[in-house]
């Protein structure tokens, strides 16, 4: 038990002293997770709107596929993205393997089903009268899309936070696509995995505390938004 307590004390010391390696992992995590959540929202929100707002043949099976992708294992995504980005892969020429945009590409795939599914559900749950009201007030299809998303804004933000929670805490994609390169692609989660393997609990605990704080902040925001959504 003593080493755990000692680990906590050292973790506080690492954080308060501005330990460069620790803060590098935090900075990399914030950078890559920001890229990933922006990508997931830019692609996923319109797709979620289309899935929730429109009716087309094959919609029900597509919903099943999207819902199944919610539990897509991160190592499988990592494997697929690695296969595409490796030098021999179809996207190898872009040189994205072991880079932050490469990790972000994988994390976007991870966050996308969450954003699509939750946005679609949010749009489906909106009042049936909304669409006809907007059309009757003269909105064109693009304006209907934007206003509908605005009406569902709290639920879409909830989707964003759920996706961010999954993205920031994943380890499989960051490890496989990023390569866990010190000062470069080492994220909080890959650093924790590495340092724990080395028996360096203090840095692992320090990064764990930061990760928990991020998760806490995200959850706190979700609670606030849930209250507003009702």
């Amino acid at each position: 038990m003593d080493y755990i307590f000692k680990g906590f004390v050292e973790a506080i010391s690492l954080l308060s002293s501005g330990h460069a390696e620790t803060y590098s992992a935090i900075w990399v995590t914030l950078q890559v997770s920001s890229m990933s959540i922006v990508g997931s929202l830019v692609i996923g929100t319109p797709l979620g709107f289309l899935l929730g707002h429109t009716t087309f043949p094959g919609k029900a099976p597509l919903r099943v596929v999207v819902d199944t992708l919610l539990s897509f294992p991160t190592v499988v995504i990592g494997l697929l993205v690695y296969a595409f980005l490796t030098r021999r892969g179809p996207l190898g020429e872009f040189g994205l393997l072991f880079t932050l945009p490469g990790i972000a590409a994988g994390q976007i795939i991870l966050g996308l089903p969450i954003v699509v599914a939750m946005t679609a559900t949010a749009v489906e749950n909106l009042d049936m009268r909304l669409k006809s009201t907007l059309l009757s007030l003269g909105a064109v299809p693009r304006q209907v899309l934007l206003t509908t998303l605005w009406e569902a804004r709290f639920s879409v933000m909830l989707a964003a936070m759920a996706a961010y929670g999954r993205i920031v805490s994943e380890v499989g994609i960051s490890m496989m696509v990023g390569g866990n390169i010190k000062w470069h692609t080492r994220t909080i989660t890959t650093a924790i995995a590495l340092e724990t393997g080395k028996g360096e609990f203090s840095m692992g605990i320090a990064l764990g505390i930061v990760l928990m704080l991020i998760a806490f902040a995200v959850n706190l925001s979700m609670c606030g938004i849930r209250k507003r959504v009702g």
Partner: peptide, 26 residues
């Protein structure tokens, strides 16, 4: 043409924003 339904829907915003929505989209 515009329709006022029996139970109209108001957007989740202020009265002014609701009233002015049709002008805004134009």
């Amino acid at each position: 043409v515009t329709l006022l339904p029996q139970e109209p829907y108001l957007l989740k915003r202020s009265v002014e924003a609701n009233v002015a929505y049709g002008l805004r989209v134009r």
